[in-house]
Design a protein around this nucleic acid. Structure first.
Lengths: 156, 156
DNA sequence: AATGAAAACCCCTCTTT
DNA sequence: AAAGAGGGGTTTTCATT
């Protein structure tokens, strides 16, 4: 038998139904969930508390739609560093750049891999210039998203 | 004067304070926000409703922590298609693959760019095999995230 | 746009099985 | 692990400025 550390928290079908409803809308009421899954609101509440304590369900956040406030360009940027040892300094500098919403230390071609949101292509150029001036950055490679056809959370 | 279509919905400082609180925690109560920004709960409520109707604030969702249910590998995969015309068929097929959480039609090297969540490297290999069998796919290139150092929403 | 008050609803705890 | 009942807080509406 595998341990929970390896396989993760075990979700039964009721847990999954609850989680999917909350993943779709964090403000779904207990009574609504209760009617859907067929157990009392108290039971739903107990399960959610357990899932939160286990860390399976994390915080809930509201989304700001970047497009609606004028941010229309989504891009991914691969960053080459001259030395991987510059990674931590680079991340520190990247945190100061609001347009950078994700940063990963990756295997493969790049040292750091970014997701960047910009208003338009001129704005993206500005950000690219800023990135290329960071210490240790030798080169960048940019992929602009022309259309995001899938955007969702994991289904298990 | 620029139109709202170009510049987006205009957010005043109070709107921004409200949005940042909700972006941090979707369940922040109106009374808590009210105390923080210095207007009544009703006024906060009215502003949130306006922002929701304008689409600036989108749905709020709860996060499932993939790691806690055994999904420990985050990767980005660039997909080469023999013909861009196969894009829509490919997206349709990709939607059936639960592990694919983002798909973008991009400029640059790749035709399609994916974010994929897997349990482990063996699981990732399975997914890569599956992707390479899709019609029109000639080659893939994978970046595994060893560490995600930034993960946040846009700040404006 | 903002306010206070009232109504409706919801979360959460307690007790019990 | 689940259920019902009750108190306290929250959202939502309404009338007013």
């Amino acid at each position: 038998m595998k341990s929970a550390v390896e396989t993760g928290y075990h979700l039964d079908s009721v847990d999954k139904e609850i989680i999917y409803m909350l993943m779709d809308n964090a403000k779904t009421s207990l009574s609504h969930i209760s009617k859907n899954v067929g157990i009392s609101t108290t039971a739903v509440h107990q399960r959610i508390k357990k899932l939160e304590q286990a860390g399976v369900i994390e915080n809930s956040i509201s989304f700001l739609n970047p497009r609606k406030i004028g941010y229309k360009v989504v891009s991914y940027i691969g960053v080459f560093l001259d030395q991987p040892s510059h990674y931590h300094d680079a991340v520190k500098a990247l945190k100061e750049v609001n347009e950078v919403v994700e940063a990963h230390y990756t295997t493969g071609n790049y040292t750091i891999f970014l997701k960047v949101l910009c208003r338009d292509n001129d704005h993206l150029m500005e950000i690219l210039n800023k990135l290329q001036k960071l210490k240790g950055v030798t080169r960048t490679e940019t992929f602009i998203s022309l259309e995001q056809s899938i955007n969702r959370q994991l289904k298990v």
